[in-house]
Structure formats: structure tokens, C-alpha cells
Simulated assay, not measured.
Amino acid sequence: MKDGVIAVVAGKEIKQEEFDLFVENLPQDKKAYLQYPGFRERLLDQYLALYTFSVDAVEQGLDKTEEFARILENTRRDILAQLAMREAVKNVKVTEEEAKEYYEANPNKFKKEETVQAKHILVEDEDKCTDILNSIVSGEISFEEAAKQHSTCPSGQQGGDLGEFGHGQMVKEFDEAAFAAEPGKVVGPVKTQFGYHLIRVEKKNEAEVQPFEAVKATIVNTLFQKKQNDAYEAKEKELKEKYVEM
């Protein structure tokens, strides 16, 4: 068989590049299976089956039916419409100046809310929670070691570390205590639906507007989508006025 030809179906050479394009156009969820042995071979079987069934359809005269003509015309219409839509928006661009102007005009959209970084210890009993607090305050045990020994929260194995979180990410009582706490000071017991907590805020991060470079890509994408929609709607209106009679 010639180089680059993977099969011959009813005299037609099927080239490797054609099959590669078929694979490239697979949905993303299907592409994930390409890592599994044998999946590409099954795809090739499916690809060749398309050709064999199409040959069979011609031999049956199905390409001469009204149904085929109707489907072909609908497909032709859809493809041409997609090409025209692509043509209508092909010149859409977003400059850095436009992105900066949008950023400066909408600072609240890029505001990073106040957050805290905190650790906690969770136990079921208030008295036990108080005893642990006293042991930490007296220096008998570190907060992290107490979390590992006593906390019923999975974070206990990381010394109680909860990472960074903002308002509303924790239950109300915990949220209020954490954001009111002084960094480095252990507060509690704080009662929530889960039990009793000791909380130590490691750091408070004040609300701030994110720098332009951090949100530039998001802004460009937002403006690009809007410009594309505007261009599409303008072209749609123009064509409707030109061709549609109602």
C-alpha cells in the first residue's frame, strides 16, 4: 500500500492525514480516551465503517432519494451559514488600550474581597475545647500539635490549616469569629453546628482591586465575546432587512 494510505475502500484511498483530522475534531470528552490502548484502532474501524456504509448507500441508490436531497440541502445551508457568520466576526479584535479602559471604568468588577488565612481545632465538647485552649495558651502544646491530636476535622492532620477563605465560605458563627479575630491570637470556643472550634487567624488580607495584568486575559475575553455578539447582531439585522419579507 502507498505511503500515507491506511486503507482502500471501493477503490478510494483513505489517507492517514484524513483520519488524523477526524481524530483532531473529536469532542474533548472522546479525546481523553486516546490514552487508552486500542482506542485509536477502534476509532479507525469506525472511520472506515463510515466509508463502507456510504458506499453501500450509493449502491442502494439512497443518494437519489428525496430524503437525501433534503438532508444535503439542509447541511449545505448550515455550512454556508457558519462560514458567513465566521466571516462577519473575523475582524473582531480587542486592543490593550480598550482592555485598560474597561478595567479603569469598572474597578468594582475586579475587586478581591477581604480574606483570612486560618487554622482551627474542632471537638464535640465545649469543656474539652476550653481545656485545649488553656494548654495552648500556657505553652504546654502548640496549636498545630493540638489540632493533630484532638481535632475531628480532616484539616487536623495539617495542623488545622484551612488555607485562605472569604466571607460566606464558612458557617456564620465561624465566619464572624474568624474575621473579627486578631491575627496570631487563639479565639474560642466558637460553637457551630459541627461542634466547638478554636480558631487562630494567621493572616488577614484586606479587600483590594486586582492589578490589571492579573485580570487582563479575563477582560480581553469578555470584550471579545461582546464585540463578536455585537458584530453578529448587526449583520443579522442587516441581512434580515435585505432578504426577509414578512
Rank of each mutant, 00 (worst) to 15 (best):
L44C: 11
E59S: 04
K90R: 01
E41P: 06
N91Q: 06
L43F: 01
R77C: 03
F39H: 06
E98Q: 11
E67V: 04
K128W: 09
M85T: 05
F22P: 01
P27F: 02
K31E: 00
I79F: 10
E24K: 15
A57V: 11
Y33I: 10
V123W: 10
E87N: 06
L44N: 15
I136F: 06
Q28H: 14
T65M: 02
L122I: 09
V137K: 12
R76G: 11
K90Q: 00
K31G: 00
K109E: 14
L34D: 04
N134D: 15
S142H: 09
D29F: 04
V137Q: 10
Y36N: 15
A118F: 10
E59K: 07
A105R: 11
Q46V: 09
T95M: 05
G61W: 02
P27W: 00
N108H: 11
F110L: 02
V116C: 11
I79M: 08
K90S: 00
F110C: 02
E59I: 02
R86L: 02
P37H: 12
E59C: 00
N91C: 00
R42K: 03
D127Y: 14
A99S: 09
E140Y: 13
I79T: 07
A84Y: 09
V89T: 06
E96T: 02
T75C: 00
E59L: 06
E140M: 12
K119D: 07
A49V: 14
K31N: 00
K30L: 12
Q28N: 15
R42Q: 01
L83E: 09
A32D: 12
A32T: 13
Y36P: 04
G61T: 03
F39G: 02
E87S: 06
Y33N: 13
V23F: 01
K100A: 01
D29Y: 08
Y102I: 00
E114W: 01
D127W: 13
K31A: 00
D127S: 11
L62N: 05
P37N: 10
F143D: 04
Q117C: 13
Y33Q: 12
I121C: 04
E66D: 13
S142A: 14
R70Y: 04
K111Q: 14
V92L: 01
M85E: 13
R77L: 07
V89A: 03
A57N: 15
V92K: 03
N134E: 14
F68Q: 08
I141L: 14
L72C: 10
A105H: 02
A32W: 04
I121G: 03
E97N: 11
R70K: 07
D127L: 09
D56H: 15
F68M: 08
G139E: 10
V116N: 11
